[in-house]
Design a binder for these strands. Sequence first.
DNA 1: AAAACGGGGCA
DNA 2: TGCCCAGTTTT
Length: 345
Amino acid sequence: MTFSQKILTWYHINKRDLPWRKTRDPYKIWLSEIMLQQTRVAQGMPYYHRFVEAFPKVGDLANASEEQVLKLWQGLGYYSRARNLHATAKMVANDYQGEFPNTYKGLKSLKGVGDYTASAIASFCFDLPEPVVDGNVYRVLSRYFDVDLPINSTEGIKYFKELAREVMDSENIRDYNQGIMEFGAIQCAPKNPDCESCPLNESCLALQQNKVAQLPVKLNKTKIRNRYFNYIVLLDDDQNTILEQRKGKGIWQNLYQFPLIESEKTIQLNDLEEALIEKSELPKTESLSLYNKEPIVHKLSHQHLHTQFWVAKTSQQIENGIPWGKIDTFPVPVLVADFIKTLKI
DNA sequence: AAAACGGGGCA
DNA sequence: TGCCCAGTTTT
């Protein structure tokens, strides 16, 4: 049996019953693929169901507001995916009459659709012989063929894509692509794979050379930046508060948060009062108290956010304020959502 | 070519 | 704690 035949056989026995495997609707396949980028199936699943229910067709998603889309996406991370998702839905609905492109190149031109996702949609929906290369595939191929080129180097990316194309089964591309990813997720797992029971263990080069744990090779550890966030949670006598939308380049673009004062390190009450004077657009506050004694350290993949929440009461009526009861309608980062849940007012 | 971009699960 | 997850875009 060839490599691809073994993958297909294993897949037919071991495949999970996943909702996006029951359809060839490009809209649903695309939706699931965007959601699953750098995201575990278990984490993405509830979001997939909520999106399909809220937006059954691409036109429904196109007609939604960005806020609605971001709110449904809240907690899934990498929010550019949600913004690109919305932009692509509008493009498909308005410029392509609601039909997704049916070629690799056409798919790749969509916002948020890169090499992997274009190949996935092309093969899953249209049976086009395009190999998918995701994290699972890198792991399976690097181990089975004992390739130690770094999977995140330009050379490695090119090499693995070509290798994937050589060993794929073009006649059964849909099942083969899903199969090799499933195989990587379940059998050829990142840690402590069960090579004893593996159907490829007779011919796996990494296993023969006892190198399974060293593959795949990956370069570059991301450096972590420490940042110090002070959120000002304003409340007037009618329980109105202020949320601001994050604009610009960095994290959480277009999500909402309380007015933020960023500092060089953890600061005390008097430092904050001073900083608050400069942020003169905020109403005058009668009282200001630190909500969490120990800073909450919210960890992103490359930033640690040391966060203090300051509750500020004002007797002035907050103009255009947000009633506290409506705060849950806004898309916010998990850091902010967790605070809102714990604050009792 | 490297960095930016979230959040959660697991050993 | 460090690594990884059905990666893509920007710098």
